[in-house]
Design a protein around this nucleic acid. Structure first.
Lengths: 111, 111
DNA sequence: ACTTACCGTAAGTTACTACTTACGAATGCT
DNA sequence: AGCATTCGTAAGTAGTAACTTACGGTAAGT
């Protein structure tokens, strides 16, 4: 199961605009650090630091290729976020359905 | 459609631990501000400020009940987050499937 | 009308975070 | 071996965010 810490890390990771931008680009296609830095208005070390946060959150993973490090999307962190939100989604829908049904019994019959 | 700003606000809102705690309690059952403050180790104004952020992110909504303000979950913000993550989920699964298939064609046949 | 209860906002402070430059390590090429 | 490329980390700084106390405003009760 996905623990609370990993969840917090994932939300924190995607809260930053630059980091979300990096995440989206890596998700679209695996990229090296310098490549990402070339596309973004921040320095290469900044990209490295962001990638560390994303990696710790389980959102991306890296593999070495010569002196370059290729980052790609890691489905694990994504799955944790999805599961967390799905829980609220189902419960909220159930609650709203329940409220709607109860309102319905007062004003008109069920069918 | 859910725009980028709302998305950023939703991620930012859920990134803070205290705010996520508030969100979870409100999602479980609608609550007043003072009630939340009584359950949490922060002051009532702090809760108010967190609820404002959550409201702006479309994650909760409020209704007046006498002098009290009852906050409840708002499915809108939740839907935006879900849709965003689902996009990556589907695309990442497609990419992994594609990669697996291509690897399969090199090492063993499809079935 | 006065008091009580509940809440949002303003102002100020502290802690954290995102960024920069500087440095060092690892790999590949000649 | 020497040099170039690519990258991670350390150190320092500026901006932001989360919290507190203080204040004002609205609704209900007596």
């Amino acid at each position: 199961m996905t623990d609370r810490l990993a969840l917090a890390q994932a939300f924190t990771a995607l809260a930053d605009p630059t980091r979300r931008e990096i995440f989206e680009r890596v998700a679209a296609r695996p990229r090296a650090v310098g490549e990402l830095a070339g596309e973004l208005p921040v320095s290469r070390p900044a990209v490295s630091q962001h990638l560390k946060v994303l990696t710790d959150a389980g959102l991306v993973s890296a593999r070495a290729e010569g002196t370059r490090r290729i980052y790609e999307l890691d489905p694990q962190g994504l799955a944790g976020l999805r599961d967390y939100l799905d829980g609220f989604w189902n419960r909220s829908l159930a609650a709203f359905k329940k409220a709607a049904d109860e309102a319905g019994t007062r004003h008109k019959e069920h069918r």
